[in-house]
Design a protein around this nucleic acid. Structure first.
Length: 202
DNA sequence: CAACGGATCAGCT
DNA sequence: GCTGATCCGTTGG
């Protein structure tokens, strides 16, 4: 049997406060969730930065009950509903009082593929987690997780990176109606689990 | 309490 | 690659 490295929880001090730096840093980091059916883990392979004073960011119009996690300490979950039906998972950045965060757009499953398949009926392979709404469904992430601290070894947590090719690509963000032309999307080059049109993943 | 948004997805060509 | 379905939590009045 191959020996797998023991998972090491990420501490807040491991996370850059700067939003763009965090978005880059999160590529390769493991997201782990202990579900009733078992443990699911996956590598983050695609992220987007949502900056302070960014018209595309939910934090742009000030703090509300919903987006409060974006204004707290970095390393907390911000989960919100999009298009009335998809829960999207973000990780807060910067420091207390500054609203910003990083959207996780795609992950590459490492373990618990069986659990993910059950949660994504009729889907398999890359289709399990190659989009922001898909990965939350596959990994059982929803509104109850918003504001959770991901750096304290809870059931939903970040773990040390499983580094891949190392090459990180940059593109514009996907699906925006405002501030669409900034290079704030980060992805692992050549990874099969990326979302978005081919042209953005070069 | 009603209007609105919206950082998507599945299915089809 | 493109199109349209599809909502309901949040917000502000």
């Amino acid at each position: 049997m191959p020996r797998l490295p023991k998972p090491v929880a990420l501490k807040r001090a491991d996370l850059p406060a700067d939003t763009i730096a965090l978005a880059r840093h999160l590529i390769g980091v493991t997201l782990a969730h202990e579900l009733p059916e078992g443990l699911v883990t996956a590598r983050i392979v695609e992220t987007e930065a949502y900056l302070p004073d960014d018209p595309a960011s939910h934090s742009y119009r000030g703090q509300t009950k919903r987006n409060a996690p974006m204004f707290g300490e970095r390393g907390h979950a911000y989960v919100y509903l999009n298009y009335g039906m998809y829960w999207l998972f973000n990780i807060s950045s910067e420091t207390t009082g500054i609203g910003a965060g990083v959207l996780v757009r795609a992950v590459e499953p490492l373990s618990g593929l069986d659990v993910m398949s059950v949660r994504r009926p009729g889907k398999s392979g890359v289709d399990l987690t190659n989009g922001p709404g898909k990965l939350t469904k596959a990994m059982g992430i929803g509104p109850d997780h918003s504001s959770l601290d991901l750096c304290v070894g809870g059931t939903l947590r970040l773990e040390k990176p499983v580094r891949g090719t190392g090459a990180i690509g940059v593109s514009t963000r996907i699906g925006l109606t405002k501030a669409a032309d900034h290079p704030l999307r980060f992805y692992e080059r050549g990874n099969a689990w990326l979302s978005g049109p081919r042209g953005l993943n070069l």
